[in-house]
Design a protein around this nucleic acid. Structure first.
Length: 410
DNA sequence: CCTCCACAGGAAGCGCAGGAGT
DNA sequence: ACTCCTGCGCTTCCTGTGGAGG
């Protein structure tokens, strides 16, 4: 008779090349951040004012995803708070991700709740919560005030940012000199600050910092650091690390992508039982990571925008290569106008509303921002002024993906 | 050179949903 | 419970732009 074994027994006993898988996930922040000393220095320079009882300037940090904005800020904040509490200096901090707390009220409630964990502020008015925060900064009678540093990550997601910042700036006047509230705003969208009220903008951007993408060498170093911690010795080939770094650098300079590549490559090696991460695993991981990335983006797109992307995929599959003025032919390059026509046809077939061509252009711009398509302005050889559109990923895959998405919804 | 084409993208405004104030 | 307000997604309208063609 066959032995009865718990089905997890085999999984549990399986050989793995990971020492600690968690250390090579994008969520993990190492204690030492490479190639960011300059920014760590600048930010801590600004925040050190709090240690001398002064209000630091507000700071706005911009950079694409995976450039270390959040990690650097969290690290500096953590050190600041540790130091302040060791020296008994009244400095406090709070981190808010504005994707989850996307309005003035939600942000204020979240902060106040963290400062007063024992009390419940559900249902209180925005003014009350705001007053509570000021009270906290002002401090008790003789104890003196506190210097509070608020980190607002993905600050571009806040709907009524003008009001929030106006409120907090005014709050500083009310608190007086004994305490203060200052802001660190983080965003990967530089354009968003142009939409702000000029006063908000000048207040938030007292200091500005731009985090550049990492280059291939930097990414290689970062990956070496991580593999040393996360993998067992001699399980990751040096060339595999370089390859993963090169792929990530070429695509975006995104450290998150680079880390994901090695994580998936490690998982693939485990599954195959080969006990080693080589170029082969990394190349396989590349396909997988790319698919995950695209899937995440596509599935969160509004339905109409999915139709636009779908039209681009369909057209680039059916359209014959266009002879370009330079003589060579380029595959899959589409005109903005023909994509819109195709989109109208497809949307009509699915009995969907059709968005105006103006809004369609906004969709196109967004799709480019997400990296799902590439666009170029038409030059010589093409009638009028139009945008040339090219799909950023494999047309078949995008087409299949959206078809599945749409079927799921119905 | 002028006009037309095929768009790009700014400005204003509209209807709706949801949240805040009363 | 109600009214008021505001942001969001979108439309309509409009001006601007650069190459093609006469």
């Amino acid at each position: 008779m066959a032995e009865l074994v718990n089905i997890f027994e085999r999984e549990f006993a399986r050989e793995t090349i990971f020492l600690d898988r968690n250390l090579i996930t994008p969520h993990f922040t190492p204690q030492k951040l490479l190639f960011r000393d300059k920014y760590i220095g600048e930010i801590s320079g600004i925040l050190s004012k709090t240690l001398h009882g002064e209000k630091p300037d507000n700071l706005f940090i911009y950079g694409k995803c995976g450039t270390g904005k959040t990690s650097v800020t969290r690290l500096v904040m953590q050190q600041l708070l540790e130091f302040a509490s060791a020296k008994n200096i009244p400095v406090e901090g709070n981190y808010v991700n504005c994707r989850n707390h996307n309005s003035k009220y939600r942000i204020l409630s979240k902060i106040v709740k963290d400062f007063f964990p024992e009390e419940d502020f559900m249902g209180y008015s925005a003014a009350f919560v705001y007053e509570k925060l000021l009270e906290h900064a002002r401090g008790k009678e003789k104890a003196g005030g506190k210097h509070i540093v608020l980190v607002l990550d993905e600050i571009d997601k806040v709907k009524d940012l003008d009001e929030l910042i106006y409120g907090l700036t005014r709050g500083n006047d009310e608190i007086g000199s004994s305490g203060s509230i200052s802001l660190i705003g983080i965003s990967n969208n530089l354009m968003f600050k142009d939409r702000l009220d000029p006063r908000t903008k000048s207040s938030l951007c007292e200091n500005e910092m731009v985090f550049p993408p990492y280059n291939a060498q930097e990414l290689t170093e970062i990956l070496r650091q991580r593999t040393g911690m996360a993998f067992k010795p001699d399980t990751v080939e040096e060339s595999a690390v370089c390859l993963a770094a090169a792929i990530a650098a070429q695509e975006s300079g995104d450290a998150r992508t680079a880390v994901m590549l090695l994580l998936r490559a490690g998982e693939i090696a485990d599954r195959r039982g080969s006990g080693k991460v080589t170029d082969r695993e990394v190349m396989k991981a590349k396909v997988q990571v790319e698919e995950e990335l695209v899937y995440n983006m596509v599935s969160t797109l509004p339905e109409q925008q999915q139709f636009v992307l779908y039209s681009i995929a369909v057209l680039s599959l059916t359209k014959k290569p266009q002879p370009k003025i330079t003589g060579e032919t380029e595959k899959g390059v589409l005109f903005s106008g023909e994509v819109y026509d195709e989109y109208c046809k497809i949307a009509k077939k699915h009995k969907e509303e059709i968005v105006s061509s103006r809004w369609y252009r906004e969709y196109i711009n967004e799709l480019e921002m997400y990296g799902l398509i590439y666009t170029t302005a038409s030059g010589k050889g093409i009638k009028g002024q139009t945008t040339l559109i090219k799909l950023g990923f494999d047309a078949e895959k995008i087409k299949g993906l959206i078809e599945r998405e749409l079927i799921e919804q119905n």
